[in-house]
Design a protein around this nucleic acid. Sequence first.
DNA 1: CGACTGATTGAGTTTCCTCAAGAACTGTGG
DNA 2: CCACAGTTCTTGAGGAAACTCAATCAGTCG
Lengths: 255, 255
Amino acid sequence: MPPLDGEVLDLATVRRSCDTCALRRMCLPAEAVGEQLHRIDKMVENHRPLGAGQTLFRNGEALRCLYLVRSGSLKSVAEHEDGTWQVLDFHLPGELVGLDGIAENRHTCTVEALQRTRVCAVPWTALQELARQIPALQNQLLRAIGRRSDEAHRHLEMMGWNPAIRRLPMFLRDLSARQARLQLDPALLHLPMSREDVASYLGLAEETVSRLFSRLHAEQVLSVRRKAVQIVDREALEALCAGVSIGPRPRRSAA
Amino acid sequence: MPPLDGEVLDLATVRRSCDTCALRRMCLPAEAVGEQLHRIDKMVENHRPLGAGQTLFRNGEALRCLYLVRSGSLKSVAEHEDGTWQVLDFHLPGELVGLDGIAENRHTCTVEALQRTRVCAVPWTALQELARQIPALQNQLLRAIGRRSDEAHRHLEMMGWNPAIRRLPMFLRDLSARQARLQLDPALLHLPMSREDVASYLGLAEETVSRLFSRLHAEQVLSVRRKAVQIVDREALEALCAGVSIGPRPRRSAA
DNA sequence: CGACTGATTGAGTTTCCTCAAGAACTGTGG
DNA sequence: CCACAGTTCTTGAGGAAACTCAATCAGTCG
């Protein structure tokens, strides 16, 4: 069996308590102390590990829980009526999943594990109730949802006006930063998703993504071997991210 | 002076109280009753009307209030470092504005009036506090933020894999539905934004949008005269929205 | 070791962008 | 009230980025 990706912290161990969890600071109980922490802890359900390709929940299902990724990774997929689909997000350890169900009390996308993945499950009604009692938790929750739409907006900005050669570096930079937060080497990426997934996420064709990887490899910006991607020249990568935009011309300052 | 757009309900009148507001059912106090309604009402600040082009808040400003559009319309604009910008959203009466500031306690985009516009302002800290006391309000608030990211995701889906000829009809259909909620004629649109704004929102060039309007006019789907757009053949418009997608091929059902 | 899935590369085509010019509307001042 | 200047919108021509189709090349798993 190949070594699992993203297992450098002791994330793979079965959850004991929030108190001892390596991800606590990135999680909902980030600011909770003592008794509060205990109440949050009691609420969390264990959830059996997901194998690659298994779904955490499906589009249309009622919202039951929010999930926090402990180890592994997942993707959020929007499924269209005509059978096409689109990757909306990837989820790494420490990230909250399931927020898509809040508006309608029903999930609006399907979340699927990209590899063997463990999550903590937090029942939504209990969480809402507890948030009412613990102001810091309410705040944490509101901000988590807010962050989700900010991220969607950043995704939108990337898709809107950047050529492909800029999108892929931006994606890799983002992944790298998220790895860094997990105390993993920010230069050594193990993409858990397929080229097709990356392409869908970036709004490009699979072939285009593949060509770009090859090109960046040839130009010594990356070292690419299938899913193992190493950032060889970070400055060059950043330069690509910052490359001249082809968006609308700068506006004259409005009234 | 030309007649203002979107003034069919008595939205233009100065706010008296949430109790008598035509937009109440779409607003935060939707489910509040009696004493609760009064407490929400007391919290709302009057806000002077904005002229076309004036900003409600700017990118980077601290989050002070959420705003509810009473009449008129606004756009959310993301401003990039290199001077380019992108329209992320349009806001019509009954819609909540300012949620972009929640994650970081600081606004991440600039919101600008497209025409003469009135809003109600709700101080954020007071709202948070009150939400703690009124569960229905907390729920309303969480769902409002959740809805915002769902909308961003739908926007993303539209931008990701639809040809231009499909994006514009989808945009018009969306606007039409939002007008219908305001009890305005869903077939008669008065676009308050410029072609450039529409183009930016759809991730297209201004010229492309213009050409598409002309084409849809020629094909009797729309009647277009500058900002006055009439949906002549709704079925045809829907058909365009549903047109064959060029996204990734349908997935075989995953494990 | 062979079949299968996923990734890469090539060739040709399409969509949509850019640049550029002209038309329509808006508002201002004579 | 009309003429003119400034915007905004429309239309045309040409080109480039990225897509589709198709074939080949790893790697993986039974």
